[in-house]
Design a protein around this nucleic acid. Sequence first.
DNA 1: TGTTTGGTCAACCATTTGGTTGAATAACGA
DNA 2: TCGTTATTCAACCAAATGGTTGACCAAACA
Lengths: 118, 118
Amino acid sequence: MSHDLDLIFAALADPTRRNILMMLLEDDMAVTDVAEPFEMSLAAVSKHLTILTRAGLIAQEKRGRVKWCKLEPDAMKAASIWMQGFGQFEELDLDGLERFLEKELSSTSEGGPSATAD
Amino acid sequence: MSHDLDLIFAALADPTRRNILMMLLEDDMAVTDVAEPFEMSLAAVSKHLTILTRAGLIAQEKRGRVKWCKLEPDAMKAASIWMQGFGQFEELDLDGLERFLEKELSSTSEGGPSATAD
DNA sequence: TGTTTGGTCAACCATTTGGTTGAATAACGA
DNA sequence: TCGTTATTCAACCAAATGGTTGACCAAACA
């Protein structure tokens, strides 16, 4: 359960990975669909997803031959809590996010990736 | 855009730099004093301070031959606000999130957080 | 069955990162 | 003026990062 701030902040330092996280905010996605909007190889995106997974920011679950990626809010929360020591920023309501994600998962209808951001 | 999330998160990804930030939470410090507890050269710490400065996380001011380092909370706040997008999902509207970020980032600190520990 | 699809692995490459050392600059104190 | 203190600069190094390509494996489908 030790969320490694090194890994978390390093993962967040890359714009591609931040974009991926924002995409996953809308919906869980398969690796191929995550990769679609980016102008890089699938292998490169796969590496980014590995980095996000090791940081604890997402989780990947394989169903059939499709690997689904979903946000995992605890790591972001750990980073947020560390940052709060530096000021009265508002704390993230990630418990609420988790409840929301569970609710969404129970009524899963995959809407395609809509590559926003950047 | 004044606060570059790439630079901010990359700066936060190093444990030495996070330690420096926590030290500065107590008080402004000269470069030499910042370097003292670390088992690395003064030049290495100086580089870390440059990285923190470019990220906007600290500011350095030279008085005489001493360069004082002090926390600059706005950059951290920008990162915190970005992360808060992951807790502010009551309506998952990424376009709205982007507008929100643009607005927040362009308007610098209103009553800024005062890093007065002790 | 053979072929496509989804995804990773392995090897490779260029660039960046985090550290070193020694020399340089600038300001203070004697 | 001379030496000391505070800090950076420059050159260098090893390791990590972010990307590529081609081979590979496993699941789905004709």
